[in-house]
């Protein structure tokens, strides 16, 4: 099946930055799972502290439909998995030029300083540790449609829907 069609049903990690406290547990769990060592610098998820917005935002690979890293990889190592639609790479062949890191609008591809190759979040074969380890529920692993559904639900419960309707309540859109 075409990967782009799959995209609608694939599970991804969604970020609820409002809930993130910046405790950094996701980074430590990611680094130890992927490298056997504890260090935020080795993690494929990075928390950006934004004091001016009073926010901590976890940044990680979003598995775009048209990933610029795929285009920019001179070694042609980055590909979309035909079954899952994830953006994956053959890390063993990576020359570490970091073109993909620069091409990514989020810089979500990161250098692994131990092996000196660039890596991105591969969603841990369907069981991302950062998600299960987040104490605040700031990371959600779900299908796009479910994430959309949640967001719509949250918006409706906030009264956004009611506000968009005319005052008499009959609704004559």
């Amino acid at each position: 099946m075409n990967s782009k069609k799959m995209g609608m049903r694939m599970k991804r990690i969604f970020v609820n930055a409002e809930a993130c406290t910046g405790c950094g547990l996701c980074q430590l769990l990611c680094s130890v799972h992927k490298t056997g060592q504890w260090h935020p610098a080795l993690a494929r998820i990075k928390i950006k502290e934004m004091p001016e917005l009073e926010l901590n935002v976890p940044v990680l690979c979003l598995h775009c439909s048209n990933p610029p890293c795929e285009v920019y990889c001179v070694m042609n190592l980055i590909y979309k998995d035909p079954n899952t639609g994830y953006t994956l790479r053959r890390e063993d062949k990576c020359i570490g030029c970091r073109a993909c890191e620069i091409a990514c609008p989020f810089s979500a591809a990161v250098m692994d300083p131990i092996r000196e190759v660039v890596v991105n979040c591969d969603l841990c074969e369907g069981d991302p540790l950062c998600v299960s380890g987040c104490p605040e529920g700031a990371l959600l692993y779900m299908e796009d449609s479910e994430a959309g559904e949640r967001k719509r639900k949250a918006a409706v419960s906030l009264g956004a829907w009611r506000a968009s309707r005319p005052r008499d309540g009959r609704g004559s859109l």
Binding site: T21, C23, E136
Partner: peptide, 19 residues
């Protein structure tokens, strides 16, 4: 206060951003 802030590895996050 607005959002909660945590120190490294904390699951309590007792700090708050204040504006």
């Amino acid at each position: 206060g607005s959002r909660h802030v945590a120190c490294q590895s904390c699951i309590i996050a007792c700090g708050h951003w204040v504006e």
